[in-house]
Design a binder for these strands. Sequence first.
DNA 1: TCCAGGTCTGAAAACGATTTCTTGCTTTTC
DNA 2: GAAAAGCAAGAAATCGTTTTCAGACCTGGA
Lengths: 343, 343
Amino acid sequence: MATTIHDVARAAGVSPATVSRVFNGGRVTAERAERVRTAATELGFAPNRVARSLRTQRASVIGLLIPDIENPFFTAMARGVEDAAQQTNLSVVLCNTDEDVAKERRYLEIALAEQMAGVIVAAASRSRTDLSALESRKMPVVAVDRRPRGSTVDVVLVDNAHGAEEATWHLFERGYRRLACLTGPEGASTSEERLAGYRTAVRDFVRENPTETRAAEALREERIRYADFRVEGGHRAMRELLALPEPPDAVFAANNLMAVGALQALAEAGLAAPGFGVLSFGEIPWAPLVRPSLSTVRLPSYDLGFTAATLLQERISGGERPLQTVVLRTELHARESTAGPGA
Amino acid sequence: MATTIHDVARAAGVSPATVSRVFNGGRVTAERAERVRTAATELGFAPNRVARSLRTQRASVIGLLIPDIENPFFTAMARGVEDAAQQTNLSVVLCNTDEDVAKERRYLEIALAEQMAGVIVAAASRSRTDLSALESRKMPVVAVDRRPRGSTVDVVLVDNAHGAEEATWHLFERGYRRLACLTGPEGASTSEERLAGYRTAVRDFVRENPTETRAAEALREERIRYADFRVEGGHRAMRELLALPEPPDAVFAANNLMAVGALQALAEAGLAAPGFGVLSFGEIPWAPLVRPSLSTVRLPSYDLGFTAATLLQERISGGERPLQTVVLRTELHARESTAGPGA
DNA sequence: TCCAGGTCTGAAAACGATTTCTTGCTTTTC
DNA sequence: GAAAAGCAAGAAATCGTTTTCAGACCTGGA
């Protein structure tokens, strides 16, 4: 049934050790190596990875833990990881943690028990995600998109603050003056950084345009809503914003799903671009189809994954180098229409 | 470092065999079992899955091969698989084959070499996907969404023909008379079945309404376009349809991505509902936001995955029963507006 | 001629679990 | 009371590799 290294050895008239050496680049005379190789193909031999992992204490699989498999941001990232991994014949195991720390912990345990070669993790929680077990067992880890608190691993991040700043600025340039912000959960590094970028942009704009007195209201408490990075949360928060005595005329949404929720709320209220401005931090697939049209900040999701996987592979192959933090830039994608709110 | 079964045995003053029995439900006296258990938790012991797999020749991991990780249909399916798998402590490994038979073959080989407990596969190709290697090694397999030719495995399918029939009929009911069809690649079971359903509905309608002479044109060759199940293909095909001397007034798109492409082409041509009817076979996430609005056939993607995983688990635990084919029903989701093309 | 230094090879010991086999005890049964 | 049966527990074999170790063989220099 399953042909083993012994079967090949017997067929080729050599010892199992020699067969192993042929497959792992040991020193074997050309003539014998040839005999082994033909015997192997003849028998359809493929080395048993489980046995190999047990012996070498290392599998040729890396784990990728993401919080939401249905979010296109993470699936694009997964593609990047996969493409990078293929280069060194690593295979990728995708685990969906569902933003749930308990589920995440279970997957991390599996990663250890399966002796995976390494793990790339987009942490479910900044403070409660615990990578120490992996670190103490010397398993290579790269954190991506979100920086877990207090762990000493390589990190690949998006330049959230800068991207949010540019995006907010863009809303001002388009002529909107009564901005609001829809950010993610308090405590998540991504939502805090994006909110910080929003605030910076508003302050800068107010400083440079002292006559625009109302712009500063964008910093007021009631204009800044914390939601949960999901469609439903964005929807509810947007409704609250619209119910304000002085509702905003544009909104900066800190991720794509909340932007979708906001668009729904706007549609229900009969509002649309260009009268109302919407900026989504993160692409909405098929955004051109979406009504009302909106501008988006394109996130380097694929590259995020690709870079993380490359870093991880360096660690796996034993590269001793200082911890690295890579920050990738975003890209503003303005909607085609140039008309502002007044038009 | 890694605590093994031996460490636990020594700490509890028993043999490794006993420890193993405690964890696998062998017969052990209560008093000893207790000693083992406390020792295990004290040492933080977790059995090494690799070693276990090597010995038992079976891993507690199942592989899920899907053709496109960025298609929400498949990610929803993945969730279903995962939820079902959790019930028996199986973990799921997601592999993205990218509609590429070579990539798929590589993943199937990995599944064998890693000795996974089983595989669920949405085949990249109906005829060229080859599951025989798995079958001959007695690895449990369930095919999902697409039925691979000539293999004897359990299958979980969508009732494509029936769903397409209902959907097409719905277009007629809304008042459209010049229908067209955008189907998938020739040779794919899903696209053929959906096309067949479309044809059945048209024929039925013509038979029941002999005065509607033009309706039969929906069966003409130029009204039926084969594309590739992707956005770009749908876009191109729709443009061709619109360029016909007698363009259609409604289109049945055989999957969600092509429907998106079609909507793009329509938007470019200045067409929208209700003047032009669009029916998407498969949900478009955030469809309510999409312009023009459209009706969709909701596919049981989650249940597809859940059912497949349940079936697979029965096979894994050795249930000997005849091969099964489960067909799940679709659900028509009409767009809210009731106005037809003439309105 | 002999020995040092190299290359190649096979035997055997890991890796960490499960499982068969055996042993020694206790309980039943006639 | 002795034979049969049942049960718990340990010793040891096993899964399929990799890798250490030691031996065999060859080459070249003194």
